[in-house]
């Protein structure tokens, strides 16, 4: 399972696919002060990205992946209105 939902933290590992979008959205809606650990994430599906953006949850551990770190992290860091 590429995304492991723990108590307060969602741990992204490997290539996270579109199937995770609904569970992720549900978890984010339910969890209190959710934390995101993208450390092990190597690919993030667009659907997951937009869920994260819409939720505006803070990223606790930024991704190691160069592409994600350089181009995706900056938007994730920004809190949507």
């Amino acid at each position: 399972m590429p995304i492991r939902f723990e108590d307060r933290t969602a741990r992204f590992e490997g290539a996270c696919t579109v199937e995770e979008a609904i569970p992720l959205a549900e978890w984010l809606g339910a969890a209190e002060a959710p934390r995101l650990d993208l450390g092990g994430c190597t690919a993030l599906h667009t659907a997951l990205l937009q869920v994260l953006l819409a939720a505006g949850a803070p990223v606790a551990v930024p991704p190691e992946d160069a592409f994600l770190k350089e181009w995706v992290m900056p938007v994730l860091g920004k809190r949507p209105p």
């Binding site: 579109v18 979008a21 609904i22 992720l24 959205a25 984010l28 809606g29 667009t46 659907a47 997951l48 990205l49 937009q50 869920v51 953006l53 819409a54 939720a55």
Partner: peptide
């Protein structure tokens, strides 16, 4: 978030 349809691309 609750009204977001994750399967519709909004990016």
């Amino acid at each position: 978030l609750a009204q977001l349809d994750p399967y519709r691309c909004a990016l």
